[in-house]
Amino acid sequence: MGNTINLKIFRLDPENARHEPYYQTYTVKTKPGMTVLEALFNVLDEQDGTLSFRYSCRWAICGSCAMTLNGKCRLACKTQISEYRGTLTIEPLPGLDIIKDLVVDLEPFFNNYRKIKPYLVPEGMPDKENIQMQEDVDLIEPHIKCILCAVCETSCPISWTSREKYIGPMALTKVYRFNRDTRDAGGKERLEVVRGEDGVWRCRTIFRCTEYCPKNIPITEAIQFLKRKSVFK
């Protein structure tokens, strides 16, 4: 079938002396079931080998290919091209430094992640393995699916303005996920990190993180839980 879509892609070449971004439009033949990532592959393979974008698993597991599609932060591999007609504008994630084309510098985002001890802190040396029952998993069930794709962070207006001053929805989701884990004993330390002025109080319950999360994690609910924990600490 002769269906096509125009991809208007943000381009920035750091080796270009003028260092000015521009938009370049490519026309791609679409086929049923095609994702945005596949369309980008088509551009890369057949039209322009200089285009840069991050990807890895193509299955919404690795969280590498988050980008701005028509003004909304989404995973390219999880978005069907058939959702769009005519022209699709593809831009890098907002609020982060751009390295090249659609590749952004995620370091500030992961810096916040490291602050919260994103691993299980045991209460001492266990003498046998920690048993997880279904009820234990249910406590953390949707939040454990987080793939660190940065969509929540880059959708949040508060995170755009100040990444050093707001720890961000992703780190807070992770705090919720580890604090509610029955194997973990580091909850107090993590709460100390997030109940400061650059922590949970900067969340304005805008719900953009929950709205755009490709894994449908109720992020705002987790942050509200942490706010209550911080108040009644």
Partner: peptide, 26 residues
């Protein structure tokens, strides 16, 4: 258009695109 301007434009477009109730309420 400088890099800073275009980054700002992406931000603006993202907030102007918000049709979901949470952003409007905010």
């Amino acid at each position: 258009m400088s890099l800073k301007d275009s980054q700002l434009k992406i931000l603006l477009r993202t907030i102007l695109n918000s049709d979901e109730p949470g952003t409007l309420a905010y």
